[in-house]
Each structure stands twice: as C-alpha cells, then as structure tokens.
Amino acid sequence: MRITCPICGARDSREFSYRGAALALQRPAPDAGDDAWADYVHLRENPAGDTRELWYHEGGCGAWIVVTRNTVTHEVRSAELAAEVAR
C-alpha cells in the first residue's frame, strides 16, 4: 500500500504508523454527557467502503495526516494534513 503524504509525496506504507479512526479531530465538549463520551471513546464504525483514519508519517516528515481509504477495494483515495482538517 502507498500513501501520498501531502508534504513528501507518494511513499511506502512502512513509513507510516496507524493511529485509528480520524475521530480524535471531533472530540466532544467536556460537558457533552456520558453517551457522547462513551461513543467517542469506545464505539467505532466498521464500514465496508470509505473510512477516514489518522496516520503518522513516522519514517518521514513527521506529519499527522487524515487518510481516506476504501476497505473493500483497498484504494487510498486521499490524504490531507490533519492540521488543515482540524482547522
């Protein structure tokens, strides 16, 4: 699998490490309630199709990126800097 780092260009997946669903960018408010927090901490989607994930370009430029990936076709559809997604 190859991921196109927005800074370095297309690189082998071994340069990246996986951090899970790109949910950390939508952290609930501190007073959002137990249900919202339980959902945020424990519950994950398991889609057959496009999924958004956080990857860290550890063996490269050190950027956090949001990768949109298709779990059925294994196609990597896009990669954006997490800093810009969160803005």
Partner: peptide, 9 residues
Amino acid sequence: ARTLIFHMP
C-alpha cells in the same frame, strides 16, 4: 528525503 534506512528513520 526523510525516509527509512532499513529499519531506521
């Protein structure tokens, strides 16, 4: 390039 050299960044 910042990349890997075998197992090392």
